[in-house]
Design a protein around this nucleic acid. Structure first.
Lengths: 118, 118
DNA sequence: CATAAACATTCCTTGACAGGAATATTCCCT
DNA sequence: AGGGAATATTCCTGTCAAGGAATGTTTATG
């Protein structure tokens, strides 16, 4: 099965998506996640397992407890996949340049366009 | 259920993902899609129905046949959702400014950052 | 008007997945 | 060493979704 399919499958669940939203603010242990989402610990562990297998999160073993944290690489991969479809409308580029230009006023040099296709 | 969950669920299937990849090159009819993906027509119709409900595609009725095409709005929504997670690393912004700057050399004015959060 | 083409929808069956309860494992503390 | 906390895993069950086959619906064509 395709790489993206697994990633989308991992995110295609309400509880797991809430987990990801939670972890956006920083790493959390299983117990903390279960508590904040009103889940029972086994279900939390199982969902985290799916997210782990999909490469969405990582684990850091801290003695008794395990700290889960978001894995930026997965989101960057998704962004790369998405780029091909966002090119369908070019006007987006103007707004994007506007946005990024506001963050990095001095970064307006020209470069290669970082393309990869099927 | 959350909006994103439905979208991810629609993309969390190998056949549907292949359909999306196909439609990236332009609109196609059900028969064409079924033929190129070696699917039977009913399954193709069912999968397209899911993509339609999720807002991934649109339909244009052309007499006997129906032409399906990608709906950019869905991908832009995904991109908006993704933006919050890509901000985890700032270095991406530099590369993005580089990329966009190459496409729009004169678009480097400053603007608002278009934020929305939970 | 009858027939065929292009889709959509239904019914049925099977496999995958989520939730619950219980259990196993690892680690800290006294 | 014993007990308890934190986490992972297993078993079981119900539900949902995918695939197959058949059928319904609309539109063009002879």
């Amino acid at each position: 099965m395709a790489m993206e399919t697994i990633l989308f499958g991992a995110l295609a669940d309400a509880s797991r998506l809430r987990m990801v939203e939670l972890l956006r603010h920083g790493p959390l242990t299983v117990g903390e996640i279960a508590a904040r989402l009103a889940l029972r610990q086994p279900q939390a562990s199982k969902h985290l397992r799916v997210l782990l297998d999909a490469g969405v999160v990582n684990v850091e073993a801290d003695a008794n407890r395990r700290r889960y944290l978001l894995r930026g690489e997965a989101f960057r991969a998704l962004d790369g996949w998405l780029a091909a479809y966002l090119r369908l409308e070019d006007d987006r580029m103007a707004r994007l340049a506007d946005y990024v230009g506001g963050l990095h006023p001095g970064a307006c040099r020209r470069g290669r366009t970082n393309e990869q296709d099927e």
